[in-house]
Structures are given as structure tokens and as C-alpha cells.
């Protein structure tokens, strides 16, 4: 075994050390001395850190398992300062930018596609149709006079179209018969009243 192998790895570059000068040599000696002095303490310190980590994990586990976490969350939600901070954050331009960037990034589209592909929407609709509340809402809507009027108005279909045509032609016939009768009787044509405003 050569002399070089017994040296510290840093000492394997004698040319470089020489180039760094005496100050670097002194610093290297100090570092080695400190390392040698602290070596007996390294193992207990490591064990203490390990024990600290274990304690921390146990504490977190206990916190998660206990009701305390729920109490903390509820207290935070009920706190007016927290609520004000959340409202302020939601009203800020940053929140708007965040929503815009989420929409622009296509995340919403991907989310929708994922929801449809996973069948979650189908399940949601199935549960919705199965719920009594939905049919209560349908009953309410169907019984509203506005919807009833709309359905009865749109439900005539073809008959309504024919009626519209008959009405238009009969109005034309009114004017034509009247004009002809007045012409035959040598009467001046009737002055029509002004057209009403639309929607009146």
C-alpha cells in the first residue's frame, strides 16, 4: 500500500494543496480536528433526531384520529377573520385570473370529458331521476301558468299555422271587400286607424 492511500482524500492532491497555501492547510487541520472531536456525539444526535421525528408523527396521527382536528377546522371556518380573508381572496383579481387560467388551460374541458367518460354524470342523472324532489320540482314547473300557457300555445302546431294563414287572408279580404263595396257605392275609402305599437 502506498503512502497516498493512507492520506485523507483531500490530501491526494498535493499539488493543489500546495497551490492553496498555508491558510488552507490550517483550515483543513481544524476541520479534521472538529470532525474527530464530534464523532462520538454523531450517533446519539442521530438517534435523538429519529426519536423526534417519531414523536412528531405520533402527535400528527393522534391529532388526525381525534376530534380536535374537526374542532380546529370548524373554529377556523367560523372565525370572521378567516371568512373575511377568504371572501377577500375570492373577490381579488388573482382569483379571477386563476379561474380564467383554469378555463383557458382546458382543465374544465378535460374534467367534463373525464366525468362523462367515467359514467359519473350518468350515475348523477340516474340518481336525480330517482329522487322524489326532482319530480316535485317538475310538478311545480308543469303547474305554473306560464309553462301551461306556453305549452298550449305551442301545442297546436299545424292547426295554428293554418289558422294564422286564414287570419291573414281574412284580414286582406276584409279590406278588399270594403274597398270594392265603397267603390261601387261611390263612397270614399275608409281611412285606416294608425297601426298599433308592437306588443301593445
Amino acid at each position: 500500500m502506498s503512502e497516498n492511500h493512507r492520506l485523507d482524500p483531500q490530501d491526494q492532491r498535493p499539488n493543489r494543496r500546495r497551490a492553496q497555501g498555508p491558510l488552507a492547510m490550517i483550515a483543513g487541520v481544524g476541520g479534521r480536528a472538529a470532525s474527530a472531536a464530534l464523532r462520538p456525539l454523531a450517533a446519539p444526535a442521530s438517534a435523538a433526531a429519529e426519536a423526534g421525528l417519531t414523536l412528531e408523527r405520533r402527535a400528527v396521527d393522534r391529532l388526525l384520529e381525534s376530534d380536535e382536528l374537526g374542532r380546529i377546522v370548524n373554529a377556523a371556518i367560523d372565525n370572521p377573520h378567516v371568512q373575511a380573508a377568504v371572501e377577500q381572496a375570492l373577490a381579488s383579481e388573482g382569483a379571477t385570473r386563476l379561474v380564467d387560467s383554469l378555463v383557458d388551460s382546458g382543465l374544465v374541458d378535460r374534467l367534463m370529458t373525464r366525468l362523462f367518460d367515467s359514467g359519473a354524470i350518468d350515475r348523477l342523472l340516474y340518481r336525480l331521476v330517482s329522487s322524489d324532489a326532482l319530480w316535485d320540482v317538475v310538478d311545480e314547473v308543469a303547474a305554473s301558468p306560464t309553462v301551461t300557457a306556453a305549452i298550449s300555445q305551442q301545442g297546436l302546431g299545424f292547426a295554428d299555422q293554418v289558422g294564422e294563414e286564414v287570419r291573414a287572408r281574412s284580414r286582406t279580404a276584409d279590406d278588399w271587400i270594403e274597398r270594392t263595396a265603397r267603390r261601387l257605392a261611390h263612397r270614399p275609402p275608409r281611412t285606416l286607424p294608425p297601426e298599433p305599437e308592437p306588443g301593445v
Binding site: 281574412s170 284580414r171 279580404a173 276584409d174 279590406d175 271587400i177 294608425p194 297601426e195 301593445v200
Partner: peptide
């Protein structure tokens, strides 16, 4: 809503 046009004989 009735408008101001009176309806004639044919109608």
C-alpha cells in the same frame, strides 16, 4: 291585447 284595427265582414 286588442289593437285599434276594427275587424271587417269577411273575418
Amino acid at each position: 291585447a286588442p289593437d285599434t284595427r276594427y275587424v271587417g265582414l269577411a273575418t
